[in-house]
Nucleic acid binder design. Structure first.
Lengths: 293, 293
DNA sequence: AATGTCCTCTGACTAAAGTCAGAGGATGGA
DNA sequence: TCCATCCTCTGACTTTAGTCAGAGGACATT
């Protein structure tokens, strides 16, 4: 399996990598072209550019000066934080970026060009599959403090979604409350799934002395559904629960969350009698964790 | 369709490209690492390295000097042709390459790691498909002189294959001869299909005054069968014949070349009565070319 | 034997990419 | 208010990557 992936890597870096770079950088150094592209039509902070492209600050500064000198970008002070600077594309810069866009299209066409119609369709379908799965494998799941910005973003999205999907809306006040401290060691933990640095999913665990641990706040962003991310978050929570000595986990859920319900069943959860009085719950599930060797 | 390819390009250059380069170049400049890899365990001619990596001869020479200086390669004269030089990895070079190998494996595993078993299988299958089709689209078909090394290589392989597949072998002396000059403008032309700078297929055209043009020497290397390359060579020959004012093309073939025969049929050729006395032929085909607009 | 082509190498460059140290203003927390 | 930290910038490098012209030996063709 590994050898297949390697074959793919070789071919793809040759075909896509080289082509991409070659098309992107016509006349202009590749570094400048990439930067111009990354700034985007709406502009960016210099800081985010530095972290996204992973550049030395001196080097980035110089690249910006050269783009500025060519009249492609304008750098201004950020209003709220005087240390930050904002880069925006000028009209000429936008035109240049549109040209890069056109070239990218051309590169794509150069790949499709030599193929027959049927081959093109198969290629595009297979590319879509590879792309989806590569994206899935790029998602990073790791613990975060429930107070962290990313955790906050997830929770907001989670509650927003409940409000939209439950038959009669969702009022956090009526639901049983879980304090931040209960989703943080040593009482529990909070996992955030991130893609390209943006939070796209979460899940929490609350340990209860002498009782099964509870799984809470399971959420996956609409944008990345179907990548098996929910299952991964769930598996990660279970693994961490097991490592904490937990033998049984349980959770409750609302009847409108059908995909979640079937995911729980597929993951080996069985429905049990209500073990709490959560007013928004219709189903209660439980799973016995296998004790790792 | 183009936008799908572009999405793919973006994801893949991020995930594979960056990973690949990073893993490959440890401490050593990327150019050197790539070269070290490309030399391979069995060694290579400097010439083939130059064409495969598409490097300037001066630059390549310098890269070799630095690898030699580090004790990783040894450059010696080629026995048969005193102009060529052969590069071989030393023990240290082989060890270094094994390390790169290990790293590539690691990179592949890092991609598969986060996925479930079913996802891995789908990913590997889709990667194989993408890879095959990208390889197909990398093949370059262009005219060459029949005396050129690549053309020679193709013709040797072609005759070798005929000898292996025909029921009673193949003796070029008995077959009707086609002079090099007849497969070169203005009397005809010779196309070579190349992949990574290596010839992998060919096809020739012989113009005949007042008669249909003849298609000759159609061959596709075993290594790249199933990529639709035969069809592309044929289409290219037809297009060039048409551009030359030819209205009808024809060809003869042996009954043991079954894939070729079905390809001709699929491409719109119909079987006709023998139009020559080629002793090895069992089928004669003809096709009327559509006059381009 | 002469001539043109092929292959590799060296010398002499240039441009791009990247690194490092430190200056200097802005901000946030003690 | 002071001090540590953050952010961006400049100066002064080094390393990589790549180009171009031409030398000189080896072959192939006539």
């Amino acid at each position: 399996m590994v050898s297949h992936v390697r074959r793919f890597n070789r071919t793809v870096t040759q075909r896509i990598g080289a082509l991409h770079d070659h098309f992107l950088a016509r006349g202009r150094p590749l570094g400048q072209a990439r930067l111009l592209w990354e700034i985007g039509p709406g502009g960016s902070d210099v800081r985010t550019l530095r972290s996204r492209l992973d550049l030395d600050s001196g080097y980035l500064s110089r690249l910006l000066r050269s783009l500025e000198h060519d009249g492609l970008v304008a750098v201004t002070q950020n209003g709220s934080d005087g240390r930050l600077r904002v880069v925006r594309l000028t009209a000429a810069g936008l035109a240049e970026r549109a040209e890069l866009d056109r070239r990218s299209d051309e590169a794509a066409r150069a790949i499709l060009g030599p193929l027959t119609g049927a081959q093109r369709e198969r290629l595009v379908a297979a590319m879509a599959e590879v792309e989806r799965l590569l994206v899935a494998s790029m998602v990073d799941i790791s613990p975060a403090d429930p107070r962290h910005v990313d955790a906050r973003t997830c929770l907001r999205a989670y509650f927003g979604e409940l409000a939209g999907r439950f038959d009669h809306g969702f009022d956090p006040e009526r639901s049983s409350h879980v304090a931040d401290a209960e989703m943080r060691p040593p009482s529990g933990l909070f996992l955030v799934a991130a893609l390209y640095g943006e939070p796209v999913g979460c899940g929490a665990l609350r340990f209860r002395d002498g009782e099964p641990a509870e799984i809470k706040r399971m959420w996956v962003s609409e944008a990345v559904r179907g990548l098996g991310l929910g299952r991964r978050v769930l598996a990660e929570l279970e693994a961490r629960a097991r490592a904490h000595g937990v033998r049984v986990v349980r959770l409750e859920t609302n009847r409108s969350l059908t995909e979640a319900i079937s995911m729980y069943r597929a993951a080996g959860y069985r429905e049990v009698a209500p073990f709490n009085a959560e007013p928004y719950a219709h189903h209660w599930f439980e799973k016995e964790l296998e004790t790792g060797s």
